[in-house]
């Protein structure tokens, strides 16, 4: 564990909590992509199967359990409890365009041809693009509530900090995982446009809206 990874994990944790609180406090999931949330739940399910096979640390297990339960909690709030507020007309990104390439790529490019390993690889590829339905939704409506933009910023920052962690681990331990690194770079790059608008608008107290 190093400081970059810790900040990354906490940023991820913070993003999930912001989203849950936003939905809970406003009793509404308007502006949130249910499709991205389902993809994230699938990412956690396929990645954290090792919760039952490999023990790493208490921290590691607790975080995995939190990510899994919170992602199902979010889905429950969106698709059941506050279903009426779900903006499904704007949430139309075709997720098969993300699922199928991630699955094919996981079968082709992996560290080992083994069920758990392929599922882990699939989760890494899918996570890198899972935010696209959400970004697509924001681009369709042209704006986002500031709380949603804080959520997106924390979620994007998480993988960015992981990149710093991988650089650190490469120099300090000689450890590197090319699959995670390349997917993590793709994931972070997808947020760049959003980061730019967040910094130039939201942090100056303006509403998050796309340039006309």
């Amino acid at each position: 564990m190093n400081i970059f990874r810790l900040i990354g994990d906490l940023s991820h944790l913070f993003a999930i909590i912001i989203l849950l609180l936003k939905i809970w406090k406003t009793r509404s999931c308007a502006g949130i992509s249910g499709r991205s949330q389902i993809l994230f739940a699938l990412v956690f399910c396929t990645r954290y199967l090792d919760l039952f096979t490999h023990y790493i640390s208490l921290y590691n297990s607790l975080m995995k359990i939190f990510y899994l339960t919170s992602s199902f909690g979010t889905i429950y709030l969106m698709f059941f409890k506050f279903k009426a507020t779900y903006d499904r007309n704007h949430d139309t990104f075709r997720v098969e365009f993300l699922l199928i390439p991630s699955a094919v790529l996981a079968l082709l490019i992996n560290h080992e041809f083994d069920v758990l390993e392929i599922l882990w690889t699939f989760s890494i590829y899918l996570e890198s693009v899972a935010i696209l339905p959400q970004l697509f939704m924001v681009s369709k409506t042209g704006e986002a509530e500031s709380i949603t933009s804080h959520y997106l910023f924390a979620l994007g920052a998480y993988r960015g900090f992981y990149i710093l962690n991988w650089i650190y681990r490469y120099y300090s331990e000689g450890f590197y995982d090319l699959i995670a690194i390349l997917a993590g770079i793709v994931q972070t790059v997808l947020y760049c446009d959003f980061f730019y608008l967040y910094i130039t608008k939201v942090l100056k107290g303006q509403k998050f809206s796309l340039p006309a």
Binding site: I56, E112, A180
Partner: peptide, 10 residues
């Protein structure tokens, strides 16, 4: 490298 397969990151 066994290390890469024991995914210790989240």
């Amino acid at each position: 490298n066994r290390n890469t397969r024991l995914h210790d990151e989240l």
